[in-house]
Amino acid sequence: MAAVRVRQHVNPLSYKYQTKVEALDWAEIYQNPHQSLHIDIGCAKGHFINQMAALQPDWNFLGLEIRAPLVDYAQQQRDRAGLTNLHFLFCNANASLAELLQTLPPDTLQQVSIQFPDPWFKKRHQKRRVVQPELVQALASFLPTGGRVILQSDVEEVAREMCDRFAENVAFQRTEPDWLATSPFPAQTDREELTLGKGLPVFRAIFIKQ
Results as ranks from 00 to 15, higher is better:
3 A>H: 10
4 V>F: 00
5 R>P: 02
6 V>P: 03
7 R>T: 12
9 H>V: 12
9 H>W: 10
10 V>P: 08
10 V>M: 04
12 P>K: 06
13 L>E: 13
14 S>H: 13
14 S>A: 15
14 S>L: 13
16 K>N: 08
17 Y>N: 15
19 T>F: 04
19 T>E: 08
20 K>I: 09
22 E>D: 13
23 A>M: 07
23 A>S: 11
23 A>D: 09
24 L>E: 12
24 L>P: 03
25 D>A: 13
27 A>L: 01
28 E>R: 06
28 E>W: 04
30 Y>G: 03
32 N>H: 03
33 P>G: 04
33 P>Q: 04
38 H>C: 07
39 I>Y: 07
40 D>K: 01
41 I>G: 07
41 I>V: 15
42 G>T: 05
42 G>V: 01
44 A>T: 04
46 G>D: 11
47 H>F: 12
47 H>S: 13
51 Q>R: 10
53 A>Q: 02
55 L>T: 13
56 Q>A: 15
57 P>V: 11
60 N>H: 05
61 F>N: 13
61 F>E: 13
65 E>C: 12
66 I>T: 05
69 P>C: 09
73 Y>I: 01
74 A>R: 08
77 Q>T: 02
79 D>R: 14
80 R>L: 08
81 A>E: 05
82 G>E: 03
82 G>Q: 06
83 L>W: 12
83 L>K: 14
86 L>G: 01
87 H>T: 00
89 L>P: 09
89 L>V: 13
91 C>I: 05
91 C>A: 11
92 N>I: 05
97 L>H: 06
98 A>F: 09
99 E>W: 10
100 L>E: 15
101 L>C: 04
103 T>V: 00
105 P>C: 15
108 T>Q: 04
109 L>I: 04
112 V>A: 09
112 V>Q: 06
114 I>L: 14
117 P>K: 04
117 P>E: 02
118 D>R: 04
119 P>G: 00
120 W>Q: 12
122 K>V: 06
124 R>W: 01
124 R>L: 03
125 H>T: 05
126 Q>E: 03
127 K>D: 00
128 R>H: 10
128 R>V: 05
130 V>A: 03
132 Q>A: 15
132 Q>N: 11
133 P>C: 14
134 E>G: 07
135 L>F: 12
135 L>T: 09
136 V>M: 08
139 L>I: 00
140 A>L: 13
141 S>E: 14
143 L>G: 10
144 P>W: 04
145 T>C: 07
147 G>C: 05
148 R>F: 07
148 R>Q: 15
153 S>M: 00
155 V>T: 03
158 V>T: 14
159 A>L: 03
159 A>W: 01
160 R>S: 10
160 R>D: 13
162 M>R: 07
166 F>D: 06
166 F>G: 05
167 A>W: 03
168 E>R: 12
169 N>S: 02
171 A>P: 09
172 F>Y: 00
173 Q>F: 10
174 R>F: 01
177 P>C: 02
178 D>V: 05
180 L>Q: 11
180 L>S: 06
182 T>P: 01
184 P>K: 11
185 F>C: 10
185 F>P: 00
187 A>R: 08
188 Q>F: 11
190 D>F: 09
191 R>T: 10
193 E>R: 15
195 T>I: 14
196 L>Y: 08
197 G>F: 05
200 L>G: 02
200 L>W: 10
200 L>Y: 11
201 P>S: 12
203 F>A: 09
204 R>D: 11
204 R>S: 08
207 F>T: 06
207 F>C: 07
210 Q>Y: 08
